[in-house]
């Protein structure tokens, strides 16, 4: 077992934020979220944080670990701190802080709704992944024009928006995940073209690619924004 210090961002109501430290005994193979749960279980029941699935599916446990956005349920303690060291956990940036480590992801969910992010989509809608996904050969299609359906990669964790330097000063910017959701659908719907080709759409991005660096779910939103720029330009120049 390791003895490490958790330095935790605390903030209730409208009070200014402060940091509190907790000594925690952890197995280095455990995850950052496990340590937060230990603090809650044995030190301070008023500590608030979000999680559900514990396996990178629900997107609830995004936090900043030593200043870098992580899904804490899949971030191993040994990868971010050494025995005896200090680990800082803070809420995501660029969202309203509700309490301690909990942010309100509502702005992201509303943008995902505005871009009509699909709950499932045809495999062919994401050719980049499609190349690496072998459809199960032993499950026959019922007809020739039937398509394989898959869940989108994006788990709507908001990590990309927290890491985006543009979102830091522009909460209205649609941001990586919503723009990636438009890219996946293409620009046949005029309302999606209007959103993508707007001041708060693809042209707001400054190509820092921080979203792609932190995305835990292989969405590569930075590349998708760039492809959406290409699509918008082609549409406007009537090349496509």
């Amino acid at each position: 077992m390791w003895k490490i210090t958790y330095r935790v961002h605390r903030q209730k109501g409208n009070e200014p934020p402060h940091y509190e430290t907790f000594q925690v005994e952890v197995d280095p193979e455990e995850y950052v979220l496990d340590g937060v749960e230990k603090i809650w279980a044995s030190e301070d029941r008023s500590l608030t944080f979000r999680h559900a699935c514990h396996h990178s599916t629900c997107g609830a446990c995004g936090m900043r670990v030593n200043g870098v956005e992580k899904l804490t349920c899949i971030t191993k303690i040994k990868d971010v701190v050494q025995d005896g060291g200090t680990l800082t956990v803070e809420p995501l940036r660029n969202f309203p802080v509700v309490s301690d480590l909990v942010v309100d992801l509502g702005p992201l969910y509303r943008k995902m709704a505005a871009v009509q992010a699909p709950a499932v989509h045809a495999l062919s809608m994401t050719p980049w992944e499609g190349q690496n996904i072998a459809p199960p050969a032993d499950i026959p299609m019922r007809s020739a024009d039937e398509e394989y359906i898959r869940l989108p990669d994006c788990i709507e964790c908001g990590i990309c928006i927290s890491a985006c330097p543009v979102a830091a000063t522009d909460p209205e910017y649609f941001g990586p995940a919503p723009l990636a959701a438009i890219q996946i659908q293409g620009l046949d719907k005029p309302e999606l073209l209007a959103l993508a080709d707007s001041q708060e759409g693809v042209w707001r991005c400054h190509s820092a690619f921080e979203c792609s660096a932190v995305c835990p779910s292989n969405v590569d939103p930075g590349r998708r924004i760039m492809d959406l720029r290409r699509q918008v330009s082609a549409k406007r120049l009537k090349l496509a």
Binding site: R64, P165, A168, H206, E210, V214
Partner: peptide, 19 residues
């Protein structure tokens, strides 16, 4: 108070440094 996020290199990656 968020303007510093444009320039703060802490935790940033290669694309962020370029920006």
């Amino acid at each position: 108070k968020n303007l510093w996020d444009w320039f703060n290199p802490k935790g940033r990656n290669v694309g962020g440094w370029a920006f």
